[in-house]
Structure formats: C-alpha cells, structure tokens
Design a protein around this nucleic acid. Structure first.
Lengths: 217, 217, 217, 217
DNA sequence: TATGAATGAGAATTCATTCAT
DNA sequence: TATGAATGAATTCTCATTCAT
C-alpha cells in the first residue's frame, strides 16, 4: 500500500511556481501593471497563498527581481574562458552577453522596470549585494592579460569597456520592438540578430584596438 | 451679442499644462502606474477637464507619446551639420544624440515604456508616421559623402551605424540608475557624462574606420 | 420650466447621511466591527463616495467621534440653570447628565470604544480640543455659589464631584445589558430608569452634604 | 504497550497559554478586533492548535469570557468579612470591588465588550449561570445585619446599593483613559487612585446613612 | 471651458477556517 | 497533540470614468 509517489521533482513547490509566474508577469507588465490575480492563475494556486508566502505584491516583486539576478549570476559563473587568448576571450564575453540578454528578455525587462523606477527596489534588496556580478572581474583579468601579452596596446578603462559591451548588447534586446517599427526589419529574426551579434563583437574589438576606451576618454 | 471673450490663449494653456503634466507622469510611472488624479493635480485643473480635452487616459498617453516625438523631430531638424567634414559631422551627430537623450529623460522613459509594451501605442499612432526621423537620412548622406571623399574606407550599413550610436547613447541614459548602483559612480555627474560622451564618439569613429559596421557584419 | 425644487432642506447632503450612518455603525460595532459597505448601504450612497468625502474608514470614525462630541457640547450649552439655587442646580445637572447618556447611547458607546482603545483617536483629534465641555465649568460655579450661600458646608473637589456624577449616570447606560442579565430586571424600562434617576440625585446630594467629596478624600 | 508518556501537565499548558493569550487579545481588541493569528503568536503555538482546542474564534471568546468570570468568582468567595461590623464590612466590600476592577482590567474590558454587543455571549453561555456572583448575597446579609443592629437607619434596596458601588468603582477603571485626557490628571497613578478609592467609600456610606438608596427611590 | 459629486469595476489584502500529515 | 500549507469569503481601498450643472 504505497503512499503517494514522491513527485516533488516533477511538480515544483507552489512557492516556486508562484515565483516563476510572478517573474513573467512583472517582467511583462511592471510592478503596477502586474496583477496578483493573474499571477495566482498562472501559478494555479489561490491568490491568498501568494500572501502566505510573500506577504505583499511588492515583496514578491523584489523576490522576482532577486531571482532574475540569481539566474544571471549562475550563468556568468558558468562561463569558461580558460584557454582563450584575450581577444577571443573578449569576443566570447561579448557573445555571451548578447545571447543572454536576447534569450532572457525577463532580465532585460526587469532591469528596464527598475531603471524606470530609479532602481528603487535594487537599492532596497540586500540579497542583490553586488550588481556587477562575477563577469566584471573576469573582464578585468582579460584586460590585464591582454595588456601584458601585448595583444592590447592601450589599456582600456574596465568600466568603460563593460558599459560599452552592455550598451550594444542590452539596447538591441531592450529596444527590439521600436527598432522593428522604425526600420521595418524584424530585429527578432535569427538573421538580423546574427548579423548584429558579430558586428557588435567587431565594434568592441575595434574600440579596444583603437584605444577609444582609455581612462582619459 | 457676443459674450464669450476670445480666451483661446488662456484656454490653450490649460490643455498644454495637462499635456506637460501627463508627459511627466507617464514618463516616470508608465501607462499603468500613472494616475489621472495626480496629473490633474500637477496641472492644477480638475480631472474632468482632462476628459474634456483628451477623452481617456489612453488617448492622453498617446498624445504625450506624440508630443515627445514631435519634440525630438524639431530638435533633429534644427541640427545643422553643414560645413563639417564626414568625420566631424558624425562626431557632432553622436554628440547631439548623447546630449538629447541625457537632457530629455522623458523621451528615453517613454521609449522604454513603449518597448516594455512591445511598441503597442507607437504602432497605433498615425501621427508618428515614421519613427526614424530626419536624422537617419542625414546619416545616410554623411556616409555617402565620406565614402565619396575617401574619408570612409569601407561603407558601413546605415542601420547598423544608427543602431550602434543609439545603443551607446541611449543605454547610458536609460540605465543611469542601475549603472550608478552597480559601480558606485554617479553616472549623472557632469564629469562621468563628459568622459563617456567623448569615448562614445571615439568608439563610433573607430568602428567606422575599422569597417566593423559593414553590411556583411 | 422650473428646475428641480430646492429640496436641500429635505434631503440631507450625502456627506451628512454618511456621517449619520457611520455614527450608528461605529457606535454599535466599534471601529473594527463596523463595515464600510454597511455604512454605504444605510446612507444609500455608493461605498466609494465615503472615500471621496472621508478618505479612509479611520478618518470617518474620527469624524463620527467628533460629531458625537459636537452634539453633547451643544446640548450642554443649552442647559440653563439660571434661577436655581445650588442644590436644585446640581440636581438638574445630574438629571441632565442621566437623561443625556440614556437617550444618546451612541455617545456612550463611542466613549466605551475609545476607552477600549485607550482613547487613541480622542488623543489624535484636534477638533475635540477640550473633552471636559462647558458643563464642568458650570459645576464649578454652582459649587462656589453653594459654598458662599452656605448651602454647601464643605467645599467638594469639582473633579471628584464631576466623576461621581458621571460614574453613576454613565455606568447605568453603558452597562444596561449586563445589569439586565444579572438581575433579571429590565433596566431600560421607564420605571426602573426613573427610580435610579432620582436615587442618583439623592446619592449626589447626600455625598455633597456629608463632605464625602472633599479634596482630601 | 503504552507509548505516550503522561504529558498531561505539558499538554495542558498549551491550552492554558492559548486561553491566556486570547483573554488579553479579546480584552484589548474585542471579538472583531482580535486576530487568531496574533493569539497564536503570543501563545507561541500554531494557529491550528487553537482550532483543535477551541473549535472556533467565537468559542474561544466565550471561553475567555467564562475564564474572566471564573476568576472574579473565586476572588469574591475568598473575601472574608467575618468579624466586621456592617459599616466596616461595606467599606471593605467597596474597597475590594474598587481594587479588583482596577487590578483586573481584562475583566472590565470584557464586560464593556459584552455591553457593546448587548450581552450577546453572556446570555448564551450556560457556564456563567448567575452573573451576580456570591458578593451580592453577601451584601444582602450585611444590610440585614446593619438594619438589625440599628447601624443602618433606613433599609436600602440591595440592587440599588450594588449598582451604586459598581458604578463608582467600574467607571473609574473603564474610563481611565478618557478621564486622563479630559482632566490632564493621571487616573492610573497610585495617588489619584487612592484618593478616589476612599472618596468612593465615603460616598457609599453617606448614601446609606442618608437613606438615598431606599426602594422607593 | 470648467468643476464637484458620484459610481462600477476591479485590485490588494485580510482573516477565519480547513486540509494533509 | 501538533503543524505548515492552502483556501473562500469577505473587506478595505483605488481608479478611470461619467453625471449634473
């Protein structure tokens, strides 16, 4: 007379389901536009359970925000650049960034939401201690390596490099819709994406080579 | 027996005040977050008057969106690059873009809002016929000129160039808050801004020179 | 073609109707027990109008509390003891108090509610500046008069006298229900009430005469 | 094969803790204002256990009400007036009452709550058979004694006497907060309390002596 | 053109209670 | 006896919109 099978692995805990549903809802609609009812519905639990687990809509939003950062951190930590020369390493780095923001629109949307709210909840959260993540340090090491090996002639400012890469990758993802309307080209299509992806790598490498990103500006 | 004085000038002003207040509110809070009450309050008129002039909150949002595009178009039309060689012209172009997005956060915010809503209202509006604006054509002409004069060795894709410039300028403005949190540097300060502004110019010129932005990618 | 008749006098403003309904509801059920829905229903207006006029349930409670104090103050001011000798004046005073608390259960209930909440809202309200009301001063004058005329042998402490009268009158009204259960007598009936009313007068006069209420205790 | 240890002593304690916590909560907040969650928290047990022991919030309220009456009955039964002459006996009686209501605010609060609800649950409870308690009978005997001995000239109505004493003592405790606000005197302080305590004794004795409390009124 | 009063539909949140273990 | 998870039914409050003038 066996008890219920242990299907814990199969059906996520309802807390997890709530968080996942919330993430989608908040990413798409923002804090104000999101509806607790609709989160409950997609998580297939009663609305009240949300309050049981998360206390308030705002708290849930913060939890979703933290989840999104958790995820990207893990992905970043798994990025392995060992064995690549500086230039290849930076290329890989750019590609990783471009792919991540294009495959994880929720992350991009949450970050946009946060910026629209002047980073209000990011500042609040003490779980998102450092927003930079491990990749920034990686970038620093690549620069050091490149300068040492002579591959990089002029040492770029790491922040400038990081922001440049972020700008080029993030904007493509965050502004797909207006770009698509503006140019009548489908920026979500594989072709356009691929073309921009490699151009961005080129732009970054050209900037490094030219010394455009030095500290002095 | 004409009784009503011709107070069109006065009447107009209340409509304008509403639009201005709405623009601020929508830019900061988005369509969902914005409150009609709060718009009425900052415009110092009754809520009803908003409905008299604009019919609905949604309409008012569209009007604000159109106003924002109206404004940038006018600014773009006033940009005079005559007498500048291609490289200087493109530099000026980049600087204009950078300055505009940093001085007109409402524009940036409205565009972010639109992207979060998959450009829903931009697609709808028939007043915002072309989103590209006059500058895109200007850019085309600069490229032609440069290629002809030999200043530009490899003809870049105009869309790629435009998107690159936009990415670098827009992201800086749209993500100021998270950047500030991430790096503990005040990205709104004049110094940091100036440094990034000239670096962006450099990046664009280096990209052009290196042929990173050709059609082929 | 006459417009609607001016029936303002007949049908109270809806704000007044809300306040009246609220007073009844809060008196009977307390702040927590009261239901905004039920207030709206008895006032025959939409629930939302309550928020339009009073902002919150709590605010409405305070308004009701203030109304109740407004009312008793007016009644007190209309009490005319001129021409009565001290003893008759004090008798009249006691009777007035007894009658008021028995005819205005809402007042008694609101005061009980406040005491259960440690006078939280009474302390908050700045409209209920002085809780003592004009009667306390009147009592002081009666005492002075009586002492001067020799009718009152030992000067009583005015606070002690006031509290004694209040105790005897208020308790009868506030505890009618438990008294009725305890003694199987209907304390709300005219007979019982009348009997207690005159006994209370006697008790107060006896206390005064005996010097039981002097300052020293 | 008895496995369960006899932990009745331990088990009991959680039931008692619930009851104690409930009593405090109900006394302070009333039936409507009380929160089951908050009772569970202060009793340091799970909310479910409350339902296990008491079935419903209402039941728990009744249990708390009964507990409060249980307690005062026990205290009353322990009051020993033997060996005191009628006047001293009545004084002691008054003092006991005054002290009890001032030291047991929960009792006072529960009674106020009941009166606000028109004694609804008092009527219901069959455990609180007689609300009068043993003291009322004691009072009757004191009167008989006093009349017989000649100490009391005019036989007072026992109910009138009881209600008079209750009024004076109970009101002081039930209305401490509003009195404190009204007169700017701390009615909870030992000094004020002591002064009122002895004045109340005086008032009662004066009333008895004067015949103010006879049946006829 | 302008407003104060009023409302319907919804939204977040609360809370007593039950379920499964 | 004990608990954490879960829920139905309210309940307060919000907000875009309309009505009457």
């Amino acid at each position: 007379m066996p008890k219920k099978p242990d299907n814990r692995a199969v059906e996520n805990s309802s807390r997890d389901r709530i968080l996942e549903a919330a993430l989608n809802e908040f990413a798409e609609k923002g804090l104000d536009g999101a509806r607790v009812d609709s989160i409950a519905e997609s998580a297939k639990i009663s609305k009240q359970l949300i309050y049981y687990h998360f206390e308030s809509k705002e708290n849930l939003y913060v939890a979703a925000l933290e989840a999104v950062f958790d995820h990207i951190r893990t992905a970043e930590r798994n990025l392995d650049l060992s064995g690549l020369d500086p230039s290849a390493g930076i290329s890989r780095f750019v590609e990783f960034t471009f792919d991540y923001v294009n495959e994880h629109r929720e992350f991009v949307q949450m970050l946009m939401n946060e910026n629209l709210q002047k980073a209000h909840y990011l500042k609040t959260s003490n779980k998102i201690s450092s927003m930079r993540g491990p990749l920034f340090d990686l970038l620093g090491r690549l620069i050091d390596q490149g300068v040492e090996s002579g591959d990089i002639k002029v040492r770029p400012d790491p922040v400038a490099l990081y922001v440049t890469i972020s700008s080029l990758c993030f904007f493509y993802s965050s502004n797909v819709h207006t770009l698509t309307v503006a140019f009548g080209i489908d920026f979500q299509s594989r072709e356009v994406r691929t073309a921009f992806r490699s151009r961005i790598v080129n732009v970054v490498l050209a900037s490094l080579a030219s010394g455009a990103l030095t500290d002095a500006g």
